[in-house]
Design a protein around this nucleic acid. Structure first.
Length: 659
RNA sequence: GCGCCCGUAGCUCAGCUGGAUAGAGCGACUGACUACGAAUCAGUAGGCCGGAGGUUCGAAUCCUUCCGGGCGCACCA
């Protein structure tokens, strides 16, 4: 409702400005006033025009206000303060709009978007930092889909990188295992129900240490081993590559299982091994040279490399750009950014080559495919998107900017504009949390607000451990409250609440705020948390259960009544405010997508729950004696319930039946 | 040294892209349960929005500059 009426008012304002002053403003500010007494919508546009028209803002406001009405959905336009124009809505009409349920008309044609998220190196267990990535990405996918976009979800797998190489070195040279031994280990762990990603977590940390804890000569040899292993992985057809394949695939499967617990699913898993073996780079290299984005450096420190100019860099003609980004090394190998450029050409359908595809993981509703040199037929097609979103932490903003710059330089300006680095800050641990986990905190770190997690050091909170802990805590609460329900039901509810708590916790912070993780905050179920919102849903559901009514039925009955009198009545402002809040969903959705910021929706969900809880406390519905008033109260609860469930679903949070 | 991000209540964070009196949660203190289930609600205390200049009708928000913190700046990924 809010979105629609706001747009209607903007259009009318535009018309009035054109007709009265022959002015066309680029954008017309329409906002929500701080208090309901100022109306439901307001514009300070008169202030902006004061200088241009050489009139007092208040006079202009009066002229505009007089010319605005009548407008469907609005009852009045008033001038207030020094020159605000406050719009009052037709409350009965507004309530009808909200009660009717709002369709999300996507005016523009369907956009094909591609969201890449999670992308954990398949050499260790997922940790809380990865959870933030996956939850942000998955939620954004839900938002895009809610807005009617066609979205492919990709999880990029770097299975030939240095991190996987390190674990392979660990198996071969630290543990002294062969490929056959690794195979046996995988079977053994599977039989015992143990997690291979946890095993690798420890081995990765151990191997990282091993590189530096020998004599100088030993360390030197170990480093060489590391780079030889990396090289063998990239080449393939070697025992190291075989171990890498075994391990990275097993760990990847575990990551997918962890994410399923959070309701997170993928459509396609492109792997770096295929980008290498299918030689995506050759095609990209040709395009990069042909468009002049890459040039061969003959001078300076990058002599013998193919390089590109960094975004914003300026070098005088004839001078060597020492700061240029190396894409092809002097030994002929390609850097990470180079491979990424090729991959992103593919994402936009500009490469002229495709992956092979094989099914990899089955969800109840669909199959997740993985890249393969020789794929299966038939298979779905991925890539060729119109807009892409890369959920990658903010530390990688430089390489991301390089890829965008390359696309632009190659003449793909439109694609470069629709390339969003969906960046977010890391999840770190508070020093107290680190100590709780048994890590030694260095003296100089004690005073810091947070300490960065490190897979290399094995320092961090594993995702599955956190989820297990959350479920344990919610289960204890549910067991205490839901004594009448059976074991399976209580477990189900506990899981819904635990996941709700975790997802909300990761979404309540805006993207560029560092999360200093602490168990106390993450395990909290009161106040601004997922369970608070879920609890509001349960309360609303209980009203209908107790009354023997359905929300839909109530809204049908309500549609024939006139609630205007009650909504305008003294002491009922809170009811109208709740309807207004309920009517903001599409506006908030639009805002979230435009700014790539899911936190706004999380905040909206909380505010809606808060207003509902207020309403719930103030008006006792089932004992209301005035039938007309009772139907309004019931309809209010029905709308709040419907909106809460819908918004929670967009956040990937389930609404329990009881809690 | 250069680039990006962040300094808002004791703590953790919002602040709708420059608007009306700066908000919420937690924590502290006071109160409200024989249930539309208190995982809730009401109330109190708590702020020179890091400092200083500027831009304008108007600044937590934009610009400049300092202070304090974080992260990047490889022929690593």
């Amino acid at each position: 409702m809010y979105l629609e009426l706001k747009k209607r008012l903007e259009v009318r304002l535009r018309d009035v400005l054109k007709a009265s002053y022959d002015l066309s403003l680029e954008s017309i500010p329409v906002e929500t006033p701080p208090e309901l007494e100022f109306g439901e919508l307001a514009t300070p546009v008169a202030f902006e025009l004061a200088r241009k028209l050489r009139k007092a803002p208040r006079v202009i406001a009066q002229e505009i206000a007089a010319a605005l009405g009548p407008l469907d959905g609005f009852v009045s336009f008033e001038v207030a303060g020094a020159g605000y124009i406050n719009a009052r809505l037709d409350r009965n009409g507004g309530v009808r709009m909200v009660a009717g349920g709002e369709s999300l008309a996507t005016a523009a044609g369907v956009v094909h978007a591609l969201v890449e998220h999670t992308s954990i190196n398949p050499n260790k267990a997922a940790h809380i930092g990865h959870l933030r990535n996956a939850i942000l990405g998955d939620t954004f996918v839900r938002l895009l889909r809610a807005a009617g976009q066609k979205v492919d979800v990709q999880n990029y797998i770097d299975n030939t990188g240095v991190q996987v190489a390190d674990v392979v070195v660990g198996f071969l040279h630290v543990e002294g295992k062969s490929a056959a031994d690794v195979r046996a280990l995988l079977d053994d762990l599977k039989r015992k129900g143990e997690r291979i990603d946890y095993f690798c977590w420890d081995l990765y940390a151990k191997t990282s240490q091993w590189y530096t804890n020998g004599t100088d000569a030993e360390n030197e040899a170990r480093k060489k081993l590391r780079y030889r292993t990396l090289h063998e992985l990239e080449q393939g057809n070697h025992e190291t590559a075989e171990i890498a394949e075994l391990i990275s695939t097993a760990v990847l499967r575990r990551h997918l299982e962890t994410m399923v617990r959070l309701g997170i699913e993928y459509d396609f898993l492109p792997r770096e091994s295929e980008i290498l073996h299918l030689d995506f780079w050759a095609l990209a290299f040709a395009q990069l040279k042909q468009t002049g984005v890459l040039y061969f450096e003959n001078e300076g420190k990058n002599k013998g490399c193919w390089v590109m100019t960094r975004p914003g860099a300026e070098t005088a003609d004839g001078e060597t750009d020492e700061d240029a980004k190396v894409i092809v090394r002097s030994n002929g190998t390609v850097t990470y950014v180079g491979k990424d450029i090729a991959y992103h050409l593919w994402k936009f359908g500009l490469l002229g080559k495709d992956f092979g595809y094989k099914p990899f993981f089955t969800y109840p509703s669909h199959v997740c495919w993985i890249s393969s040199e020789k794929g299966e037929e038939p298979h779905p097609h991925f890539g060729g998107a119109q807009a892409i979103y890369n959920v990658i932490d903010s530390r990688q903003s430089d390489p991301q900017a390089n890829v965008i710059q390359a696309l632009r330089g190659m003449g793909h300006a439109e694609q470069a504009d629709r390339y969003t680095h969906f960046s977010y800050e890391m999840v770190a641990l508070t020093p107290r949390c680190a100590e709780e986990l048994g890590y030694e905190v260095a003296e100089e770190d004690r005073g810091r607000p947070y300490i960065e997690v490190s897979g290399r050091k094995g320092f961090g909170v594993k995702a599955d451990d956190l989820i297990d802990k959350l479920i344990g805590a919610t289960r204890a609460e549910v067991d205490a409250r839901q004594t009448g329900r059976d074991e399976a039901e209580r477990q189900r509810i506990a899981e819904q609440i635990a996941i709700g708590a975790l997802r909300y916790f990761m979404l309540k912070f805006t993207r560029n705020s560092v999360i200093a993780f602490d168990f106390k905050d993450a395990l909290s179920f009161e106040g601004e948390t997922g369970p608070y919102i879920q609890y509001a849903v349960v309360r609303a559901r209980n009203i209908f259960r107790k009354a023997g009514l359905t929300p839909d039925g109530v809204l049908r009955d309500f549609s024939g009544t006139d609630a205007g009198g009650y909504l305008a009545a003294e002491g009922c402002e809170d009811i109208w405010a709740l309807w207004l809040r309920a009517g903001r969903r599409t506006l908030v959705l639009e805002q979230c997508i435009a700014t790539a910021e899911p936190a706004y929706l999380a905040k909206h969900a909380f505010q809606l729950a808060q207003e509902f809880n207020n309403f719930y406390h103030k008006h006792h519905i089932l004992t209301e004696e005035d039938p007309a008033r009772k139907i309004l109260l019931l309809a209010t609860a029905a709308v709040a319930l419907r909106e809460l469930v819908a918004v929670l679903a967009w956040l990937g949070i389930e609404s329990p039946e009881a809690m």
